[in-house]
Amino acid sequence: MPQSLRNHSTLHPIRTTLLTLFGLLLVAGGVYATNYSLWVNGRSNASAVAGNYADFIYWGPAGTAAGVNKKSVNWDGYNRVSTQNYRIRDALDCYCTGTNWCYIAAHSAGNLQVGYALSLFGGSTRNVKNATPSSAGTCGDAGGTQTGWNIKWVNIAAGAGGGSELSDAGSWAVSEPLVADLKTTTARALYDHNQTRAKWFYMYAGAKGTLYSGILPGQDDEAVAYHSSGGVSGSGGASFCNPSDWFCNDLALGTAANEGGKTKWAYHSVKFRDDTESLNHYTNGNWGGVVSKVRADMEANAR
């Protein structure tokens, strides 16, 4: 008898038992935990339908693997962080309460949105929701309350938590409310970036920037500099680079203080530094740029 068939025959009773158990699991539906992967966009998201968690137009093809049960947390990417933050809190309430847990991925100004939500609302009382959203992006109560949300960790691509020098007059439209929030002084004063309630922010920093190299200090991805994408604490304006640049302080990997002594925000760890200067800021409609690194990590580890 061929080996494969022999095994097949021998395992049959075990398979039957396990299949029965899985069947029972299905019947009992609703009592087990579900993990979700929330994707929080950055600046300029006019084409997406806010509240539609299946709309991945900001990122790329919706069928692309990007973590278990992925959801697109669409905010407009145009107005103030504070006036749009309810979109993020709605999503966190929907998918990250009760027995459900979330992995979070955010891009650019989405860094500010997630940080703002956790720092200022992370200890608030939340209604446990049923993970079934309305068209407005809100979910029904499942009964009970809890403190904060259930978050495993956060991946940040090209984070603008520390703002961007491009928000100063001349580079981006000054009439755009979000641009004012992205000013380095404002972004860094918006909330205590160290207060993540002990959730890790894994930072992915790109360096394929040339267009604004005269304005963005140190290495940049054409929209944000390493001081922001690397989660560096303190004032903006500081230059951080790859180790190959002898004339500029290194952005250190992990949680270590950077060359020159500047530390990172607490619970911020640089997972990826673009030593080959190959990734820019933009998704390019196909999960591109620095987002490609975060997407790969979500696919592998958000499960």
Partner: peptide
């Protein structure tokens, strides 16, 4: 159970960057 294969993962760890998985080309869900 039917085919008795070892577990597979969607993307292996990167050789060039030990801290993160490789940026494999986007694959479908």
């Amino acid at each position: 159970l039917l085919w008795g294969q070892p577990l597979q993962t969607p993307s292996p760890p990167s050789v060039s960057d030990a801290s993160i998985p490789s940026a494999s080309p986007p694959t479908s869900d």
